[in-house]
Simulated scan of single mutants.
Amino acid sequence: MNIDHVLEAIPPLSVYLLVGLVVMVESLGIPLPGEIVLVSAALLASSHSGLNPLWIGALASAGAIIGDSIGYLIGKKGGKRLFNWAGRKFPKHFGPQHIANAERMFHKRGMWAVFFGRFVAVLRILAGPLAGSLNMHYPRFLLANALGGIIWAGGTTALIYYLGVVADKWLKGFQWAGLGAALIIGVVVTLVLKKRMSRTHEELPAEKDDAVA
Rank of each mutant, 00 (worst) to 15 (best):
W112K: 09
H98N: 14
G110N: 10
Q97P: 00
A127E: 02
Q97I: 10
A127V: 14
M105H: 01
G132F: 12
L126I: 13
I99W: 03
F141M: 06
V114A: 12
M136F: 11
Y138L: 13
M111E: 12
A121D: 06
N145R: 02
P96K: 05
F115K: 06
R140F: 04
F119I: 07
L142T: 09
E103D: 02
L143W: 09
R124Y: 02
A100N: 14
N135G: 10
L130T: 08
R88P: 00
F90S: 03
V122H: 01
A144K: 11
R109M: 11
P139L: 08
E103P: 03
F115Q: 08
A127I: 05
G95H: 03
L130W: 06
V120Y: 01
M105T: 06
R104N: 10
L143E: 00
K89L: 14
K108A: 14
K89M: 10
L130A: 05
F141I: 06
R109N: 13
I99R: 01
R88V: 02
F106T: 11
K89H: 09
A127R: 08
F90E: 02
V120W: 01
A144Y: 12
F141V: 07
Q97H: 13
E103A: 02
L142P: 03
R88W: 01
L134Q: 13
M111T: 08
F90M: 05
A121T: 14
H107I: 00
I125G: 04
F115P: 06
F116K: 03
H93P: 00
G132N: 11
G117I: 06
F106V: 14
R109S: 07
V114P: 05
H93M: 11
L134F: 03
Y138G: 01
I99T: 05
P129N: 11
H137K: 14
M111I: 06
V120H: 02
N101D: 13
H98M: 03
P129V: 11
P129K: 04
A131P: 02
L134R: 02
P91C: 13
V114I: 15
H98L: 00
K89R: 15
R140H: 12
K89G: 00
R88C: 03
A102M: 07
G95D: 03
R88T: 06
R118Q: 14
Q97K: 15
V122D: 04
V120R: 01
R124K: 12
N101I: 13
K108Q: 15
F115C: 09
L123N: 04
A102C: 05
Y138T: 01
G132W: 09
K92I: 00
F119C: 06
H93T: 13
F141W: 07
P91H: 13
F94I: 07
I99F: 11
G117A: 09
L123T: 04
A100I: 00
N145D: 14
A121W: 03
A144C: 10
F106C: 10
R140L: 12
P96M: 05
W112Q: 09
V122A: 13
L123C: 12
H98R: 15
P91R: 14
V122M: 09
H107T: 08
S133E: 04
N145Q: 03
L143S: 13
A113H: 06
F90N: 05
F141G: 06
G132V: 10
L126F: 09
G128W: 05
L134Y: 07
A127K: 08
R109G: 00
P139V: 06
Q97L: 11
M111R: 09
M111Q: 10
R109V: 00
Q97W: 01
H107Q: 10
I99N: 03
